[in-house]
Design a protein around this nucleic acid. Structure first.
Lengths: 333, 333
DNA sequence: ATCGTCAATCGAACCGATTCGACGAATACA
DNA sequence: TGTATTCGTCGAATCGGTTCGATTGACGAT
């Protein structure tokens, strides 16, 4: 493997000259630079990442912490990972993806061995065990998911409270007074998935203001439980409309509705909350609040890159809750 | 950040002693070792990855190349990524995940900057542009997906030819003579996704031997096209059984069958090819060949680790095609 | 008492980059 | 013509580990 020394020898200059030609931090004569560039091409030289990191304390790697929970619908996670990976590369960073169950330990390991310049946490819980560790390390952190204490991080999330209100308002405006609300499984709330209760509480409160009756269910996540539960809910005919905040349930909804001959929106109005891409993947013809995973992921990367490249950058940490936008797919009336 | 020098000072020994205590490559007295371990704990020391990599030319990182194609069903990919990530970590490796479109370029970059000790390629095409690059680099490579020329790599894949035969035989044994075969989209074959034509050709050949009539379709991948096409196929009533080799189509199948009131297996026998996990996620009650993504991913990691830790390990490269196993879910008769 | 062996430790070199200070040559200024 | 400035380049130090002799002291054998 060619080193900078080989390049220098071939171009007849010193190692430092090659380095300066590469970084442009000092002026190098045109001829010399061209000779160096040729040598680089000939030898197929790329700076050794370890050596560079050692000297500059910069790895150009972002640690991405993804935790796949059994009580969540895994395909949904991918929507966040891909845009993050793409955005990182555009900014010149690679992604070290960590799926370890023991997040805090892994975080400490990557940080203190200086393998990464910064960290992105996905699916952050209300009191996330990774946060204290994050605060103790020197690398900046960006996250998707709103924790209780956001101090020290750039945080991006959908405004789940407002989403709950928007969905309820939408149904209220159409005159519905009896509705079913299907939330994530209880485990999600138990382990601190704040989005689950944020939307729920806001929705319940707003529904109360409207004087609506709400029938609440914690949706299942694994088949065949999903279908059974959903079937039971439909058979009970508890309301004229349904809010579904559960990826697994909404993905299963079309076939279950079909099985029961329930027509949407004639027999039942349905609203959900999922991304456009998710909706297309599962062919979901439901009016829904857009969750914008791509936008969230990209913003998290942008904020992180800002702080990594600019350590003295001392802007207050931002907490951005993006406003829910409802996409009308005609599943309500 | 604490360095080995700080540890040495605090324990009152030289740096080399600390290093040997850590690696165990030379004997260190019990007392000294304990003093060192205490110092390490106190300072929260972890060896700097860059420095270590520089000296040992070992990064303990595996490059994982994933390409998400638009003509494929993305959730299916995740099934390979997660087991690989887990298996790697168990072996002490981290995963650098690359989703770049320009695979060859990224491969060269990671390899020649020595960021990774080895590489795993997912979804390898028949004539994959990444392979020539792989052969030119010094890091070993392992892959999931069978290319035309496997020379120089450890390759793992499902035996798609045999899978095609198994599925046809299964239907033949039940007396079906007219069957529908839904394959991946034509683009998949066009860009070299060998699994698409391997299964198809083997199935067609075997069907011919049985004297069966086969109606062939290239399945769509994106909704709503999937449903439309599937509906049209069902309406045409072309056979008594159906082989579906297309993730998007099979995921959509239950609801489309329902919509048309087609009963499985009474009106139509159905067999597919997907993993147990995929089937559970989408609640697919179909007899199918198991694709074993977890097993494939883990084997790829194991083989790679073998070669990385043992560079002189010169065993012939293995090409393992795992034998298809049909899981009977009662969707045929 | 002497030698060899072994366990425990140290010092120095090295991995491959970056970067600071210095230096010679060319140019500008007075 | 002498001096200051700029340009282009080089040498050496450094980042934080690992590893190869070398060294020291204790012990057993002769």
């Amino acid at each position: 493997m060619a080193t900078i020394h080989d390049v220098a020898k071939r171009a007849g200059v010193s190692r430092s000259t090659v380095s300066y030609a590469l970084s442009g931090k000092r002026t190098i004569s045109r001829e010399t630079r061209e000779r160096i560039e040729e040598a680089i091409r000939d030898l197929g030289f790329t700076p050794n990442a370890g050596a560079r990191a050692l000297k500059t304390s910069q790895t150009l790697v972002i640690g991405l912490f993804v935790h796949f929970f059994e009580d969540e619908f895994s395909p949904a996670m991918l929507q966040y990972v891909l845009p993050i990976s793409d955005a990182a590369r555009e900014a010149g960073y690679d992604i070290l993806m960590v799926t370890e169950t023991d997040g805090p330990k892994a975080l400490k390991r990557l940080s203190s061995s200086e393998m990464v310049d910064g960290v992105i946490l996905l699916n952050v819980a209300h009191e996330d065990a990774r946060l204290p560790v994050m605060r103790s390390i020197r690398q900046p952190g960006s996250m998707v998911g709103l924790p209780k204490d956001t101090d020290g991080f750039d945080v991006f999330d959908l405004d789940w409270d407002e989403s709950g209100r928007v969905l309820v308002d939408h149904l209220a405006a159409l005159g519905h007074t009896d509705i079913v609300l299907v939330t994530p499984r209880e485990d999600v709330a138990a382990r601190g998935g704040a989005y689950s209760w944020r939307l729920k509480n806001a929705a319940l409160e707003r529904a109360a203001e409207h004087g609506m009756r709400v029938h609440l269910f914690h949706g299942e996540t694994q088949q065949p439980a999903v279908n059974e539960q959903l079937g039971a809910i439909l058979d009970a005919k508890l309301g004229t409309a349904m809010i579904v905040h559960n990826d697994a349930v909404i993905a299963a909804l079309p076939s279950v509705l079909h099985a029961r001959g329930v027509k949407v929106p004639d027999d039942l109005s349905v609203v959900g909350i999922f991304s456009e891409e998710f909706g297309r993947l599962f062919n979901l013809p439901y009016t829904a609040v857009e969750t914008s995973p791509e936008q969230l992921g990209r913003r998290a990367v942008r904020a992180l890159v800002q702080r990594m490249t600019n350590p003295e950058y001392a802007d207050p940490h931002r907490v951005e809750l993006i406003a829910p936008e409802i996409v009308d797919r005609g599943s309500t009336r």
